[in-house]
Design a binder for these strands. Sequence first.
DNA 1: TAGGTAATTGTTATATTATTACATCAGAAA
DNA 2: TTTCTGATGTAATAATATAACAATTACCTA
Lengths: 162, 162
Amino acid sequence: MTSLTELNQYSSEHNHNQCVSLALGTAQQLCNQRGVLLTTIRHQVLTLIWESHKAVKAYELLDRLRPLQATAKPATIYRALDFLIEQGLIHRVESLNAFVGCRCSDQQHEQLLLICKLCEQVDERPAAEVMSALLEESKQAGFMIHSKAIEIHGICSDCSTK
Amino acid sequence: MTSLTELNQYSSEHNHNQCVSLALGTAQQLCNQRGVLLTTIRHQVLTLIWESHKAVKAYELLDRLRPLQATAKPATIYRALDFLIEQGLIHRVESLNAFVGCRCSDQQHEQLLLICKLCEQVDERPAAEVMSALLEESKQAGFMIHSKAIEIHGICSDCSTK
DNA sequence: TAGGTAATTGTTATATTATTACATCAGAAA
DNA sequence: TTTCTGATGTAATAATATAACAATTACCTA
Ligand SMILES: [Zn+2]
Ligand SMILES: [Zn+2]
Ligand SMILES: [Zn+2]
Ligand SMILES: [Zn+2]
């Protein structure tokens, strides 16, 4: 089976159906393993998030969910988002107040996010050297890490070569 | 003259008046050099932000500003914050929707922020190795960096030794 | 000094993002 | 069945942020 992380370098012309089915498959699998429910609503929200590699806003998700769930309210979305974040299936992009699918939910979390200002796509990278430098820096500061948000804004390679 | 960055390792019992006067002095100086105005309101907001090393919320600043500026409104605060950020005198902490004084406004920006969950203090560090690893990673990805938000949450050394 | 211009602030309204509290429902366990 | 738990429905509101336009102030120059 192809792992999500093997698709790390997606181009603008990649087969996105593959991204989606892989993400949803992995999500279902992880939820089964963990004994938690990927309910209809949660599955729908995750699918909506995976419509692209862009980060999506909560109220935009709400608008897109309503045709499928007539009773959807802000709480509906935020509950689903909370669940998906807890399960490591999506990331919250702090600097955008938005949410993006995680391409390595079966592996290490808290990666580095490269966020393109032009195409708005978010690329998630393990960036092992950055992480180890970060660990060393924290160690020197006597700081115990609980969580990280590493968000880099700029222009992606696709956009800069166009 | 002592530079802001020489006070990098502040302890819980440090002389905070020194932090404040240094920050405000540097701010005034930079604004003079740049031909921009550190108006009364901007000076007051910067002073309020520097009341501690914690990140402060915009509406908390508004509450604290009102006794000094009876007509203060959200726009008053957000304009002052925008100005202070533009001038590199404060940082926006994306993961907290809050703002903290910059201790190296005369030097390199976009440092790493260590944010303590207990005392809420924010420590700003140049973290040269992290930054160079980040640069290398971006380069490999063909990504042109415009700005960075590197925010680490956890427990600071003061709090973990108490 | 007067007049013109740009920057700053005042003011109102509103947009956007997120949470709380309580009721209801569906499924598993006893 | 009853009970419990987790999920969802629903309404209200809190928290964060921006837009638009008017009034004022600072600054430059004639
Ligand atoms: Zn894709
Ligand atoms: Zn791009
Ligand atoms: Zn201090
Ligand atoms: Zn602390």
